Amino acid sequence: MIYPSLDAFVKTGAKHLAKGPIAMVMVEDDVEVATTLRHHLQAGFATVLAFMPPDFTLPRDLEIDAIRITYDVTVEGAVQKAVNRINDAAIGQWLYYCYNAEYLFYPFCETRSVGEMLAFHSEERRAAMLTYVIDLYADDLDACPDAVSLDHAHLDRSGYYALARKDPATGHPRERQLDFFGGLRWRYEEHVPPARRKIDRIALFRAAPRLRLLDDHTFNDQEYNTFTCPWHHNITSAIASFRTAKALKRNPGSTFDIPTFKWHNSAPFEWHSRQLLDLGLMEPGQWF
């Protein structure tokens, strides 16, 4: 189904928000759009919304299975606006957002649905889940000049770290909040603005009144920005993403400085949650 605008969807598409969890895929370009949508449909999202330009095409099955909303996500602030509008229209539902060429992984995702995971997370009285955005990149940039290859994807197996997140009003660290860094944004930080170097994103969250996504991928409710509850560790998840690699190779200021993304800490991406768990890039918490 196709809606001509976000306004049209909010006014007439309420039936698609009646059951969660709901995925929102922000389509910036035409790279791996179909695989992104299929990945999240297979993960068990009840509804997958594709925010995308009108001139992009989708395979016939996805025109049926995904809900297409004509929208320009490249405009400044457009992603936050879309997420916040869907939040207001789907109070109480679990929502998720990502970009094309990004793929959600969570503990045991090969055998359990995202709905099962979020049901357990809800039982632990959590309304949001931290996701680490793990950079993927093609191993051969001559063969894949846009740095995207599903068959030959690599990731960094080390080089990740966290710093205390300070409250700008007091200068003191915020409780149970950290800023996470690593991957290509860390290795090529001279080409990445400081405000865009973090790899943490609160990509899974329960819609709530007056909740607002901010431009740094955090929310105006500080509890939503925590990585764990006060009494024990919670589930975290990961988004395997080609987005940074694409940007670094498309940017004229960085593309010629990067003949390859591979280094001594590169490893083939196995497309399996076990690898991410073993590398410490997500954790199951109390969920077994």
Rank of each mutant, 00 (worst) to 15 (best):
I86H: 01
D215N: 15
D278N: 12
P21C: 06
L95V: 06
E223P: 04
N87P: 04
N265P: 06
H121K: 10
D140F: 00
F227M: 09
D72R: 10
G92V: 11
D142F: 14
A101N: 00
K166Y: 13
D65V: 11
F45E: 02
L130T: 04
F205P: 03
N265T: 10
N265G: 08
T244C: 05
E110A: 06
A34Q: 06
F219C: 04
L118Q: 04
I2F: 14
W287T: 06
E76A: 14
D146L: 14
A66N: 01
D156M: 09
K249A: 03
A143F: 07
L184A: 00
Y224N: 00
I64M: 15
N84W: 04
A18C: 08
Y97V: 03
A23K: 04
A245M: 01
H172Y: 14
N100S: 06
F227T: 00
F227G: 03
E270Q: 14
R165P: 00
A164I: 08
L213C: 03
N100L: 02
D72F: 10
E32H: 09
H264R: 15
A8P: 09
E223F: 11
D278M: 07
D88W: 05
Q275A: 08
L155A: 03
T244L: 06
R157W: 06
E283S: 13
R196H: 15
A247T: 11
L49M: 09
V83T: 00
A147E: 00
P145I: 09
R112S: 11
V148N: 00
F205S: 00
A240C: 14
R185Q: 01
L184P: 04
V73F: 10
A82F: 07
Y99V: 10
V83A: 02
A164C: 10
T170K: 05
A267F: 06
I22D: 03
V73E: 05
I258F: 01
D61S: 11
I91W: 07
I2C: 12
L136S: 03
A169D: 12
L163K: 15
F105G: 06
F120W: 12
E110K: 07
T70Y: 10
W287K: 08
R157Q: 12
M24N: 08
M52Q: 04
F242Y: 02
Y160K: 05
R212W: 02
D88I: 01
F51M: 05
Y71D: 00
F9I: 02
A238Q: 04
K249T: 11
T74C: 13
W186F: 13
Q80G: 09
R197Q: 15
H191V: 09
Y137A: 01
D55A: 15
V31M: 10
V79T: 09
T255Q: 15
F51R: 00
T57D: 15
Y99D: 07
P268K: 08
Q42H: 13
R112C: 06
R85E: 14
A195N: 11
I64K: 15
A238I: 00
A34C: 03
I199C: 05
G77S: 08
W231I: 13
L276R: 01
A119I: 08
L136M: 13
Q275G: 03
I202V: 14
Y106H: 05
Y99H: 14
M1Q: 09
F256Q: 15
D139A: 15
A89M: 05
D179V: 12
P145F: 07
R176W: 10
A153P: 01
C109N: 08
Y97K: 02
A90D: 02
R174Q: 15
A34E: 07
A78E: 03
Y103P: 06
R68V: 12
A247W: 11
P107I: 01
D221K: 11
G182K: 05
